[in-house]
Amino acid sequence: MSKLIIGRYIPGDGPVYRMDPRGKLLATFIFIAIVFLANNWQTYAIACGFCLLAVIATKLPLKTFLQGIRPLVWLILFTALLQLVFTTGGHVYWHWGIFSITSFGLVNSIFIFLRFLMVILISTVLTLTTMPLEIAAGMESLLKPLKYLHVPVEQIALVMAIALRFVPTLMDQTVKIMNAQRTRGVDFNEGGLIQRAKAFVPIIVPLFIESLNVALDLSIAMEARGYQDDKPRSRYRSLHWSHYDLYNLGFFVLLTVLLIIFREH
């Protein structure tokens, strides 16, 4: 469990770390949208180049990113494979029943593979360099216009921030409870499906109770500090735009323009 890189923050000092979370969130969404503009070799090469630059700008070792991709590699390959054998058109290289490998399929599956990879890389850049609470704060700020539609943006953001905050706590608690039950002779690696499923009861029950206790304690602590859900709150870390964010957004505007120019019309 501790090996999962996705969604994890790793402290660092690359330029990406100095960017405002709002800017990074916007840039990530922009990238995920405009990656679909790419439709030929030139545009894919440009998008990949920009993606690599973003990775380099984190100053984190490339190894970290590879670890982030590893758990998803089968999903990506599977999707690419489906694309490969079910796309028709162009020159046919191989044919068997409903499956065929064609030149269109080959190109398409490579494009899908690259697109998948880039989306994962860019989201990993965001989560590796931005603390979960910063992401929540950024979301809240970006969703502010919805307040005029009577959406309780602040409360939603608080719920999000609390949920994110307690993910590591519950992970630790899960490991702790699993260890305690292993010590009492529970074996998670042996037995049939039903036996293995049964072995999880001694984990789920304590975890559930622990979560309820944490929630109760937290609500008491919040009330003790005067939290009221309809009052505006100040924040400890305020968000500030800096010249780094200008580079960040400028970078993705440039990418969008390049993609529009070089894509096949």
Binding site: Q173, K176, I177, N179, A180, Q181, R182, T183, R184, G185, D187, N189, E190, V201, P202, V205, P206, I209, E210
Partner: peptide, 24 residues
């Protein structure tokens, strides 16, 4: 191996910190 460690855990008991969280 992670398998076959039950006899060891029968011989070596551990009471963890705040063990009340193991009750179910």
């Amino acid at each position: 191996s992670n398998k076959g460690l039950k006899p060891l855990r029968q011989q070596v008991g551990i009471v963890f910190q705040f063990p009340e969280s193991q009750l179910f």
